[in-house]
Write a protein that binds this DNA or RNA. Structure first.
Lengths: 125, 125
DNA sequence: GTAAGCGCTTACCTTTAGGTAACTACTCAC
DNA sequence: GTGAGTAGTTACCTAAAGGTAAGCGCTTAC
């Protein structure tokens, strides 16, 4: 029979770790727009106005701020092409692509969640 | 040779869909505390003060608000046991568990992200 | 020359998130 | 009766998020 010591069980340690991991992840991915923006640019590189059009609801001010933030954190790159007038294209970095699984799971969950909400709406009426 | 019609490609439709899914998911999972709270309660049911202790940094007010919100959205249940004094336990519902993969991926990403940050700190000094 | 588009920036304002601290009603232990 | 703990609530406040609207410097199209 194993002696149970008055220490946190390995189990508990694991739980605490995953909690810490999620907290750390959310620290950089906070806010309404970071993940949608990364997803959009992982799907394809885009120009400022194209992004603003795709994420309907985001204002120019917020988009500019979020893009700067994501660039600082190495999620996207701002490329300037010397056409006249200059063409500016935002593209996702390799590091953005490490979020592929997260985004995949989130999208799958979002889809089934929408279904569930629809169901419960129907039941109400 | 295939004729290219002036319609969104199936590809584009898929992209737009996953964007919409992610937006919908984030709509219910917004804020700093929802996902950590769900994770904590999926790991084990807990009482108010236990949660507050585990998620150090959350205030009683915010915790109470978030718990109400999560209960409304069917992620958790508030159980009252008629001991004296009453014992109140929050537990995750089955619906919370549909987030298992999302939380798993987020935790994995958060872990490697922390590593990456540590690396770049070292390089700086 | 006038209008429109691009990629923003600025000033201004409202909304929300979220923290602090005090307090409640109840119970138990000392 | 004093202190501590449980499960919050309340009032007050700050900071951050985020929206609106206007404008800027540039260029092309009409």
């Amino acid at each position: 029979m194993k002696v149970i010591k008055n220490e946190p069980l390995p189990n508990k340690v694991e739980c605490a770790n995953s909690l810490k991991n999620v907290l750390d992840a959310l620290y950089v991915l906070n806010g309404k727009w970071k993940l949608p923006l990364i997803l959009s640019l992982v799907q394809s590189s885009k120009r400022f106005n194209e992004i603003q059009h795709e994420l309907s609801g985001i204002s120019a001010k917020v988009l500019a701020k979020e893009l700067k933030d994501l660039e600082l954190n190495d999620f996207i790159t701002r490329k300037v092409y010397p056409t006249t007038p200059v063409t500016i294209v935002y593209e996702a970095t390799g590091y953005s692509r490490t979020l592929k699984n997260v985004l995949g799971e989130l999208s799958a969950w979002g889809e089934q969640h929408r279904e569930k909400i629809k169901q419960s709406m129907r039941r109400q009426s």
